[in-house]
Computed example of a mutant assay.
Amino acid sequence: MVSISQPEQFITNGLIPWLSALFAICLAIIHIYSGKLRFIDTIPRSRWLSTASGVSVAYVFVHILPDLSIRQRVIAQTGIFAFIEHHVYLIALFGLTVFYGLERVVRESRKIQEKLGKDTPEVGVFWLHIISFALYNGLIGYLLLHREEPGIQSLFLFFIAMALHFVVNDYGLRQHHKHIYHTQGRWILAVAIIVGWVIGYGTEIDQAAIAVLFAFLAGGVILNVLKEELPEERESCFWAFAIGVGAYTLLLLAL
């Protein structure tokens, strides 16, 4: 006897590639047109940006990290990282450290350039920054198809969190690199998402590898959010950030 759930599962599995492709295009569009959202270009920092940051952080702490604690056992069984305890969290820490180091390089370059009368980092630092975020965006495009939890609901939750996260990232990159980001950087990051999705469509990896990728992403999201919210000169809005955290946390717990 065929279970009623089997046709529904078949339809769901057939929809996911199409939905994920649509979402990849939407994420690419965010990088292309986010600069036109003039209401977020304000000091004190736009409350919308702080709310978006809160949503991204809530997704990491309420959805990704708890699932990674389960995936920890999957990785341990592979024996790949048998010599390290808490492998998944170390990978998340590595992701955070990588993006912290990258941010320090960009800020130091910008300070040096300001002494020369310029308001953007060196061109070489720009390309380092953009290539790093292109890989980051490609990873997110890839994970649209290969998430830690399958299903349309999981895809929607991931897309919403990453869409808002991209608005925040795009704002930070435009502040750092200005004209060169507008003319070149945003297009590279938009294409990187699509390339990541295409690679994801043509390949499939095991659950241990997916856990590793999500762990790295979790660390990257945390650092990229906090580096935008914490600097005093940004005059960020704590209450908007808290509302984003609280609202998305309640949504994730309710589903």
Rank of each mutant, 00 (worst) to 15 (best):
H87R: 10
S69A: 10
S109E: 10
Q77R: 06
S34V: 09
V55H: 07
I32S: 02
H86P: 02
V60K: 13
S69D: 07
H31G: 07
K115E: 07
D119I: 11
I80R: 03
V55I: 15
A58G: 14
W48P: 00
K111T: 05
I91M: 05
L128M: 14
V60L: 12
K36H: 06
A76S: 13
F99N: 03
A52Q: 05
W127T: 08
L128Q: 03
V62H: 06
F39T: 08
I84L: 14
A52Y: 12
P66C: 02
T42I: 14
Y33T: 07
S53F: 07
I30P: 00
L102V: 11
R110H: 00
L68E: 03
A52T: 03
T51V: 06
Y89L: 13
G54H: 08
V125L: 09
V62T: 13
A52H: 05
S109R: 04
A92G: 10
G79S: 04
R45L: 15
L102I: 11
K36L: 06
L128P: 01
F99H: 05
V123W: 03
I30Q: 06
T78V: 03
V123D: 10
L49V: 05
Y100C: 07
T42L: 11
L68M: 08
R107V: 10
H31K: 02
V98H: 00
G124F: 09
L102P: 10
S50T: 02
R104P: 02
I112D: 06
L102W: 03
S53D: 14
K118H: 12
S109N: 06
T97A: 15
K118P: 02
T42G: 01
S56D: 07
V60H: 14
F39G: 11
G124S: 15
S53H: 10
K115A: 08
I84M: 13
F99A: 02
Q77E: 14
D119T: 12
F81I: 00
I29V: 15
V106D: 04
I75P: 04
I32Q: 14
S50E: 15
F39L: 08
S34L: 09
K111P: 00
T97I: 15
L65H: 12
R38M: 05
P66N: 05
V105P: 01
Q113L: 04
G124V: 10
D119P: 03
A92M: 11
